[in-house]
C-alpha cells in the first residue's frame, strides 16, 4: 500500500499482518484461500472485485484489536432492515447492489453519475478506524475505500458549495424497514465541505479485505471516524453539494438529541446516553471515550473557535 501522507490511523507496510491471521476461526479457511489471490477477491454476481493489497493489521494505531468480522457483520444499526441489531444481517441479503449508481450533483461544475464499477476501479486503500456508536459501544473496523475528496475533485464544487448532502437508497420493496415510520425515509446525512474533504473521510466499498456486506451499507457507504456512527450513511445513491446546511435523518427525528455535527465528544452527553464512556464490543469493562474518537490531532482544527456544546 503506497500512501502519500501517513496519519496516525494509516498503516505502514511493516505493521501489517496477513489477513488470514486476523480473521475469526469461522472464516480462517476462506481467508487462507483468498490470501493466494491477493488483490483479486471476486465479489458477488461477477461484478468487479476489489483490487487493493490486502494488508489488514490486527490492531488500530492505539494498539486495540480489530473486531471479529462476525461482530461487525451481525451487530448493526441499519434501520432500513429492522431495528434489532441482528435484523440487518438477516434482512439485507436480498438487497441488489448491482447495478448501482451514485449521482453527484448540486453546486458542482461537472455533475456526474458514477456506476459502482467506476468507483471500484479507483485506487482503493485500507483504513483501520474506530467506529463509535452514539449508543456508547464501539468497534475497530478495517475498511476498504477511497477518500471522498477524490469524487468531489472530479465534479468540481462551485464557489458557493459549502455542504455535502448524502442520501440512502429509498426502496421499501428491498428495504422492509422503510415500510414503517421509525424514521422519515430516505435516510439523509450531511457534512460541511471541509469535513467532507478531510483525508480521514472515506467512501468505503469493502471491509476485512472483502466486498462490503449488505448489512454494512453495500455497495458504498460513508465512513467519518471522528463522528458518531449514524453520520456514516449507508447504501448511498446521491451526493449533493449545497449552499445551506442539509437536513439529517436523526436530527429531523429528534433535534434535541442529535445535532448536525455529531462529533464524538465525552464532554457533551446525549440526553439518553452518557458519552463519557463506551464499551468496545466484546470487552467486559467500559473505557473512556476520547474527544473526536481519538482523531483530535487530525480534525480538532476544523472546529476551532466553535462552541461544541452548542454545535453538537
Amino acid at each position: 500500500m503506497l500512501l502519500r501522507s501517513r496519519t496516525a490511523s494509516q498503516a505502514r507496510e511493516s505493521e501489517v499482518t496477513p489477513r488470514n491471521l486476523v480473521l475469526s476461526r469461522r472464516t480462517a479457511l476462506a481467508g487462507a484461500a483468498a490470501a493466494f489471490a491477493v488483490g483479486g477477491i471476486p465479489s458477488m454476481s461477477g461484478a468487479a472485485g476489489l483490487s487493493f493489497q490486502t494488508t489488514v493489521r490486527p490492531r488500530d494505531e492505539k494498539a486495540d484489536p480489530i473486531a471479529p468480522m462476525k461482530s461487525a457483520t451481525t451487530y448493526n444499526n441499519f434501520y432500513e432492515f429492522g431495528t434489532d441489531k441482528a435484523d440487518p444481517s438477516r434482512n439485507a441479503r436480498a438487497l441488489r447492489t448491482r447495478p448501482w449508481q451514485v449521482a453527484v450533483d448540486g453546486e458542482v461544475v461537472k455533475p456526474a453519475t458514477f456506476g459502482i464499477e467506476d468507483l471500484l476501479a479507483l485506487p482503493l486503500e485500507e483504513r483501520i478506524y474506530r467506529l463509535r456508536c452514539v449508543e456508547a459501544w464501539s468497534m475497530v473496523i478495517p475498511w476498504v475505500g477511497f477518500p471522498l475528496a477524490e469524487i468531489l475533485k472530479r465534479v468540481e464544487p462551485t464557489g458557493s458549495a459549502r455542504y455535502v448532502a448524502f442520501q440512502t437508497l429509498h426502496d421499501p420493496q428491498q428495504m422492509p424497514g422503510q415500510r414503517g415510520p421509525v424514521l422519515q425515509w430516505p435516510y439523509v446525512e450531511g457534512l460541511r465541505l471541509d469535513e467532507a474533504r478531510h483525508p480521514l473521510t472515506i467512501l468505503a466499498v469493502g471491509m476485512y479485505g472483502e466486498v462490503l456486506p449488505n448489512q454494512n451499507g453495500a455497495p458504498i457507504r460513508l465512513v467519518v471516524p471522528w463522528k458518531y456512527g449514524f453520520k456514516s450513511i449507508k447504501s448511498i445513491v446521491r451526493i449533493t453539494l449545497t449552499r445551506d446546511q442539509p437536513p439529517t435523518a436523526w436530527n429531523r427525528s429528534q433535534p434535541n438529541e442529535y445535532g448536525f455535527y455529531a462529533n464524538v465528544n465525552p464532554e457533551v452527553d446525549h440526553p439518553r446516553w452518557s458519552q463519557a464512556t463506551e464499551r468496545r464490543v466484546g470487552d467486559f469493562f467500559r473505557r473512556k471515550t476520547l474527544p473526536f474518537n481519538g482523531y483530535a490531532d487530525e480534525v480538532a482544527g476544523l472546529y476551532a473557535g466553535m462552541d461544541l456544546g452548542k454545535y453538537f
Partner: peptide, 20 residues
C-alpha cells in the same frame, strides 16, 4: 453491577440526568 461495574457515581448521574 455488570454494565456500569458498580460505578455508583455514573449510575447516580444516570438516574438524575436521564429521564428514561
Amino acid at each position: 453491577g455488570i454494565d456500569q461495574f458498580f460505578d455508583w457515581a455514573a449510575v447516580w448521574k444516570d438516574i438524575v440526568k436521564r429521564p428514561y
